[in-house]
């Protein structure tokens, strides 16, 4: 096993490296989020058909993209913890689940609000929104399964299996929902189609997508640090860390 992969397995090293990454990544992410939002909200032209309500795209699409990517991160971390029995991969999976669920909730909430001015109803069974709803249930399933086990070691193994099963099913779910949508609705416009917006609107969107990916990484690392502290609470390096916990 090459050294970097092996090092990833040792908690104190991972705790420290996560801390140093966060020190510079978190400020950059928050800065990118603010500039992207202000740019998208206040400086770009409104869209021809939808007017200003399209500005929600700058948080809906990035959240949806990262929510889906988050599930794959969780499932792959689960696979690594199952196959190579790495405790830190368990920690990554456990940390990724709630963060992914939160991003899926953002995508669902903003998608629903966006439906009101565009379609006149609070909830629209658009293919993308429906798949996002199912993804949200998959996330909740993993979180609920983890809480249902008393023995946390078995809990993370069971969640790894469930997230792998989920990962295999996501493409099937997305394709079958698209098929279902086309089957029943016919070719009504898909209001979340990216192709139609022109370049001046594309740049803030790309910035926001990057910012959301960075935000996911930050939240993942933040949660992992807490999880490592809890799991390694009886080791020496955590006790030493706790006693000189004067600093932030």
């Amino acid at each position: 096993m090459w050294p970097i992969f092996h090092k990833l397995g040792s908690p104190p090293w991972l705790y420290a490296i996560a801390g140093s990454i966060l020190r510079w990544l978190l400020p950059i992410t928050l800065l990118a989020l603010v500039t992207g939002a202000v740019w998208g909200l206040l400086f770009t032209q409104p869209e021809r058909i939808q007017g200003n309500s399209y500005r929600i795209i700058y948080i809906h699409v990035p959240a949806a993209v990262v929510a889906l990517a988050g599930y794959y991160v969780m499932a792959l971390a689960g696979a690594v913890s199952l196959i190579w029995r790495m405790k830190m991969a368990d920690v990554a999976m456990k940390a990724a689940a709630p963060v992914g669920a939160a991003f899926t909730f953002i995508a669902l909430f903003t998608g629903a609000i966006w439906g009101k001015p565009t379609w006149g109803t609070w909830w629209v069974w658009d293919a993308r929104i429906t798949s996002m709803l199912i993804l949200f249930f998959l996330y909740l399933g993993v979180v609920a399964l983890y809480e249902a086990f008393d023995n946390k070691e078995a809990a993370s193994k069971a969640c790894a299996v469930l997230s792998l099963v989920g990962m295999v099913n996501i493409p099937i779910i997305y394709k079958s929902v698209d098929w279902w949508y086309a089957l029943h609705q016919g070719a009504t416009i898909k209001f979340t189609g990216e192709s139609s917006i022109d370049s001046s609107m594309m740049y803030p969107l790309l910035l926001m997508i990057g910012a959301f990916y960075a935000l996911f990484t930050c939240c993942l690392l933040l949660n992992m640090r807490v999880e490592i502290l809890q799991r390694e609470s009886r080791t020496q390096w955590v006790k030493k860390l706790a006693t000189k916990a004067g600093r932030p």
């Binding site: 978190l26 929600i56 963060v99 939160a102 953002i106 909430f109 903003t110 609000i113 939240c219």
Partner: peptide, 17 residues
């Protein structure tokens, strides 16, 4: 519609961090 969507997103992100 736009401002509530953004405020909820900001709230969730703040919670997450």
């Amino acid at each position: 519609f736009v401002w509530p969507a953004y405020s909820v997103t900001i709230a969730v992100i703040a919670l997450l961090v």
